[in-house]
Computed example of a mutant assay.
Amino acid sequence: MLAGGTDRTSVVLEWLMAELMRNPRVMKKVQKEIGRVVGKKPQIDMNDIGRMDYLKCIIKENFRLHLPGPLLVQREISDNISIGGYDVPAKTRLFINAWAIQRDPSTWERPEEFFSERLENNRVDFKGYDFELVPFGVGRRGCPG
């Protein structure tokens, strides 16, 4: 579990750095925000991070586009259910394609683009309460890390 967590973290950070290099306008905007919030302090603290709204947008957009795992952990259906017009019998293993959810054109405008401004003034969060952004799963079945 520890190795899986560190591997996924490094992959997501690499994608974030790649997106910032591909989008110099975004890089400059977040650098200005960090300079404004942190100033000349030698160290960033948790209070500073809470005031960096654009940085949060960039991180959420990176999770949307480059999530840690494309498929969420499989689940077994306990009762017969109906999903989207399909009848699913009990004991069926269900895989959730989070990659497709986060690139759904009916939810996201230009879903293949890294566009962090789409999340400014947007309540969507990656904690599993908003089903259009689920990089770590949903609710009590979400990633414990």
Rank of each mutant, 00 (worst) to 15 (best):
A100G: 01
F126L: 01
R22T: 08
G35L: 06
W108Y: 14
G145N: 06
K29N: 03
I58C: 05
P144V: 06
E14R: 10
K32L: 11
I77N: 15
E109Y: 08
I96V: 15
Q74N: 12
R22A: 14
F95Q: 04
R123P: 09
M17R: 03
V37W: 02
E61L: 00
I44G: 11
E61A: 01
V30S: 05
M21C: 13
W99K: 03
R64I: 00
D104E: 09
R25E: 15
P89A: 06
V26C: 08
I49L: 15
S116I: 03
G4D: 12
F126P: 02
T6I: 09
M52T: 08
R141K: 14
G84Y: 15
K56R: 12
L55C: 10
C57S: 09
W108I: 09
E61C: 00
V12W: 03
F114D: 04
F115L: 07
R64G: 00
L65N: 05
L13P: 02
G139V: 05
I58P: 05
P68G: 03
I44P: 10
G84K: 10
Q74F: 14
Y54I: 02
F115P: 01
L71A: 06
E33F: 04
A18H: 08
N80R: 09
D125Q: 05
G5F: 05
S10F: 01
E132S: 10
K28I: 07
S82A: 13
N97W: 11
D87N: 11
P135C: 03
P68H: 06
M1E: 01
